[in-house]
């Protein structure tokens, strides 16, 4: 059925970049992100007949998200359902050299987002990188809007505190 492949590639694959970015942020390394992405795309293709045609990006993100979570469940279950551990943020590697302020900040922020528990990281990345609305995030993550709001809010408070703490450490040393 080559026309089915063509249609899938035309409708869904334009959102591959968004899907990969989400997988990479959820899994935190390229190797696993590529494996999960491949599985997600094949899975999406199998379900493609049942896809309504609305919002292919949100649909692909949902499939990618679910694939990433089942991968974590099987391989790194302890990363799921974790609460904030303030110590986690203490382990961020020191920047080896004096860097331009901007790149230091950039590194700091990326590290702080990586250190968020996956449920919080997911909501934050979908909001700030993909620009999804609360409702769209709720649909992708399969949680109520209230949960999206509280996770987003806690993720942000945590990031602001983590970045402020790191900047303090940086200026003190």
């Amino acid at each position: 059925m080559p026309q089915r492949v063509d249609s899938f590639e035309a409708v869904v694959l334009p959102h591959l970049k968004a899907g990969y970015n989400l997988a990479r942020w959820l899994l935190r390394n390229d190797h696993d992100a590529e494996d999960v992405m491949q599985e997600a795309i094949v899975r999406a293709f199998r379900f493609y007949d049942g896809f309504s045609g609305n919002n292919p990006r949100g649909w692909l993100l949902t499939v990618v998200r679910n694939s990433a979570y089942s991968f974590l469940q099987q391989n790194r279950a302890r990363e799921l359902g974790t609460e904030f551990d303030e110590d986690l943020h203490g382990e961020i590697a020191e920047t080896p050299e004096v860097l331009v302020l901007r790149s230091a900040q950039q590194r700091l922020l990326n590290q702080a987002v990586e250190a968020l528990p996956v449920e919080f990281r997911e909501v934050f990345v979908l909001r700030e990188m993909e620009g999804l609305s609360y409702k769209e995030i709720a649909d992708v993550a399969g949680v109520p809007i209230g949960t999206v709001m509280s996770r987003l809010s806690r993720a942000r408070r945590n990031l602001i505190a983590a970045v402020a703490r790191r900047e303090q450490v940086g200026s003190a040393s």
Binding site: P2, Y20, N21, E34, F45, R46, N110, E128, M129, V163
Partner: peptide, 30 residues
């Protein structure tokens, strides 16, 4: 935080190798 996140978070891109593998996987699956 919002401004900084939008400007500074790394946007990871799929490698060309992955895209090629995906196309192949789709044909095989079909």
């Amino acid at each position: 935080l919002q401004t900084s996140s939008r400007a500074n978070l790394i946007r990871y891109a799929p490698s060309p190798g992955l895209e090629a593998r995906l196309h192949a996987a789709l044909r095989a699956e079909a």
